[in-house]
Write a protein that binds this DNA or RNA. Sequence first.
DNA 1: GTCTATAAATGGATAGAC
DNA 2: GTCTATCCATTTATAGAC
Lengths: 193, 193
Amino acid sequence: MNTKQQIVELSADLLREHGFHGFSYLDLSRALGITKASVHHHYPKKDDLGLALCEWTHDWLSQGLEHFDTKGTSNWNKLERYLQAAIKHTLTDHKMCPISALYSDLNKLSEPMTLALKSLDDLELGWVTKVMTEGGQNGEFIAQEDSKAMAALFIFSCKGALYYARLHGQDLFHQTMKQFEHLLRQTGENHEH
Amino acid sequence: MNTKQQIVELSADLLREHGFHGFSYLDLSRALGITKASVHHHYPKKDDLGLALCEWTHDWLSQGLEHFDTKGTSNWNKLERYLQAAIKHTLTDHKMCPISALYSDLNKLSEPMTLALKSLDDLELGWVTKVMTEGGQNGEFIAQEDSKAMAALFIFSCKGALYYARLHGQDLFHQTMKQFEHLLRQTGENHEH
DNA sequence: GTCTATAAATGGATAGAC
DNA sequence: GTCTATCCATTTATAGAC
């Protein structure tokens, strides 16, 4: 792998651990065994690196969604796969979702990065909306007049619960999403594994 | 108002606009017309200031919750008052919730501040849980096996929607919380104003 | 592509005079 | 309580040699 790719991969890790303003060119140079000036050669401004990270996140998210979307599974199962990925990523590997990581620095991001972030949201929100719509139509979920709002409810609950889990423990995450499932599927039963 | 109080009040504003690491002693000194050294005299370390901000937020939150809690109103009305305050604060005045602002910097906060933040969460979550429990018992809301999980769902939805509203517009906030209301109250009707 | 060297700015913090 | 002066570390960024 060439240096430029290594820089993005490493930055993606550091982004998810510390946020965009939580790592520096010095951190990158030390980890890669090169100098700061060399990092600047590949990404002159940190904003260039930031845009590359948005592209990286776009690919990361697309691949994830495609994987959750496997043909032949129920719509609820798609959401469960999303949640399982979130659990592994955040609760096990202790990394933030890269979108949440970028949101942490929202007020200091450049306009191009802000726009890129918005389009990442749209990708994620669009996917969950589609799942909600289909699940509502085939009777898996309760009927929804506004699938996008239900999708937002799901995403906010999941990401909020992941944030709080860092201070309040993992149980709160599981209980919150179990509650969401109950509301969405209108069943008193827990889901099967 | 003495200087020490002025510093906290101003810091609380800056916290809600830029996060805890998004403002500096220089910002404070310039706005107050004194030097950095004078600010340090009142709060030697920034962590001291941070703990004072947690206290300030505790008071701010307590007063808010007490206000929403007026006797004789329905439990749903209490949640509506909470939402109205969130709307005014964030969508109108363009300030973050101070708890969310502190969460933005979670990975860089000192341990005392992290503990203080957790206790702020507990205060808020406890209040909403009580409202959910009472509303469930008197038939206002759907029956809940886990009021705390429902409270968490409400808080995460509200705060997530406020975050996203900064990029995606206010409609997403209103639609999301309308969807939550529908799930909680099991009615197809919109709420009266 | 990588290096040395350096610039310019910022942020937190302290010593000591008034 | 406030000031001047200063320190030290960090971060982003550039010039120019190899």
